[in-house]
Design a protein around this nucleic acid. Structure first.
Lengths: 325, 325
DNA sequence: TTGTACGCGTTATCAT
DNA sequence: ATGATAACGCGTACAA
């Protein structure tokens, strides 16, 4: 390992001067710069992040915490985070929060002792205790979830997006539209989406039909069953995740109903899952990768607080059409 | 920030003693231990990883490099890595290698300066230059790819798995079986799988029918087209990734052929994708999560070199059946 | 069993 | 413009 002192000796200057040259600060002559840079190259010197972190009390590490590290939504966000972080010379430290956020405390402690530059939370919001654990100097950003009263976040307007999506189905001519909603404990995501749906339905003078799932694939088939029990003649199902929507498409076909001829299906998130079913899912797109990048940029510009609302859009693929008469 | 000296002062001992207690070493009385532990709790002391790393020249960081951070196979491995790392008190640093491994050099440098305990490469093998960049002290493990001549790796026996899978289709009664192979540049994954298929076919006296894809969804439909052009009466397609297999299922249905009644489809990897199509994919399972855990354990036991071959298995779901007469 | 003293690599500060 | 020095927080010989 080459140290800064080795370089200093080789170039015939002090360690302080080497540091100045390497970090592009002021205070050295052109000739000194040349000698130092030569020595750096010859000795293959590289800054030791540990030593720097010890001194500066900050490292170029961004913490990234997801409920599962293997679901499609988090994957898309992670991709954006990784890219933006890399471009700015930051490293990403990955953690799984677990379903009940059981692991999150440990990770926050770790990130504090590593002096992370910031923490990005996917599909989770920060609580008082979490803030405590992390200390006051590390910014936290939530992604894909909007607690607008709280700390900075990057998300779409879920209520508005669900409203627009329901209006879209209504404008296609559907009247009996079922909602496969999310986990009722998910107050910052499932609730606004349900509100958006209910508002659009009530404005159109239609009766809401609602069943609850978990956002995951497995809850799609039972959710559909619940909806059809309430209203056997549904012509459209709006599921608030692509996974549930995919399950609904497959279960409908299992029951001998065609998609979209008999029943239209609309998903949410525009993850890769939406392309894996047949017909491919129409869905409400969140710009997930972009949201990940935006979160990194927010951390790097620490003064940039407040919620950031990203645009949503509705993507029509094969799973929606006007209702068959 | 509470330092080790604060604790020492509070407990009326020296910093050295605190360190011994905290790290569970020998050399202190029971009474001292009690006082120290009380002080640690009261002052909320936590070891500073930067300072420790500076001294010990090692950090509890494991580098995890994947070709994309958002594909289903890598996600499963990541899940296992995260879990095993967390259980052992290690943090995971995430990076994307990029399609041509363009970003890998930068990450290896970073991991060296962070003094990572080890590096896990998903679907990639290490080269001489990479080894150079990383220095001699950081172990590297490849996962889901088997360069048996090389450094430690954790993978299945791809050749044998493809052989077994092809035998499985043959034993169902299929005779005209097409292979949708992987990217021909993938010599450590695509090649062995193709060899396994060809060996099984030749042993059975059948003519191989092969088309090449990229492992990704988009290459599934053109690959099927290629296969059907070569042999219009295929009764089974073996695609060497679930993504391609899913695309094949969907494209077959698009063309009016039923799965599995007209054509059976067999995938590879048993990722979540295999459950998202209808009918769900029969597939060759790799124990991906387990492979991630195994890789972490290999790093923690540095002497544990050599390749580790994990068991594969064939999972029958709805997409395969005996051929229809 | 316990404490002292030093070193790890960097950077801020102050002096020159 | 440059240098000397003192932290930063921890772990560990070595001494007591």
């Amino acid at each position: 390992m080459t140290t800064i002192r080795d370089v200093a000796k080789d170039a015939g200057v002090s360690a302080a001067t080497v540091s100045r040259v390497v970090n592009g600060l002021l205070g050295y002559s052109e000739e000194t710069r040349q000698r130092v840079e030569e020595a750096v190259l010859r000795l293959n010197y590289e800054t030791d992040f540990m030593a720097r972190g010890l001194k500066t009390r900050q490292t170029s590490v961004i913490g990234l915490l997801a409920p599962m590290v293997s679901d499609a939504l988090a994957s898309e966000v992670m991709r954006g985070v990784e890219e933006a972080a890399r471009e700015h010379g930051y490293a990403v430290m990955l953690g799984r929060t677990g379903s009940q956020s059981v692991f999150i405390d440990g990770y926050l402690r770790t990130l504090r002792t590593y002096r992370a530059a910031g923490v990005i939370l996917i599909s989770a919001v920060i609580t008082q205790e979490m803030r405590q654990l992390l200390g006051p100097n590390i910014p936290v950003i939530s992604v894909a979830i909007s607690d607008r009263s709280g700390p900075p976040s990057v998300s779409i307007d879920d209520e508005r997006a669900a409203y627009d999506a329901t209006r879209h189905l209504l404008s296609l001519g559907h009247q009996r539209i079922g909602l496969l909603a999310g986990d009722p404990t998910s107050i910052y995501v499932a609730h606004p989406r349900q509100r958006g749906y209910e508002r659009a339905m009530s404005e159109a003078g239609r009766t809401p039909v609602v069943a609850h799932g978990t956002f995951f694939y497995d809850s799609g088939a039972p959710g559909l069953d619940d909806l059809l029990r309430q209203e056997p003649n549904l012509t459209a199902v709006f599921a608030v995740s692509d996974e549930m929507a995919a399950a609904v498409v497959n279960e409908l076909q299992e029951r001998g109903r065609r998609v979209p001829d008999d029943v239209s299906v609309l998903g949410f998130d525009n993850t890769s899952t939406s392309q894996h079913v047949h017909p491919p899912l129409s869905t409400v797109a969140q710009p997930l990768e972009d949201m990940g990048k935006t979160a990194v940029n927010k951390i790097l510009r620490a003064r940039d607080l407040g919620p950031r609302i990203m645009p949503h859009s509705i993507i029509s693929r094969g799973s929606t059409s006007p209702p068959h008469q």
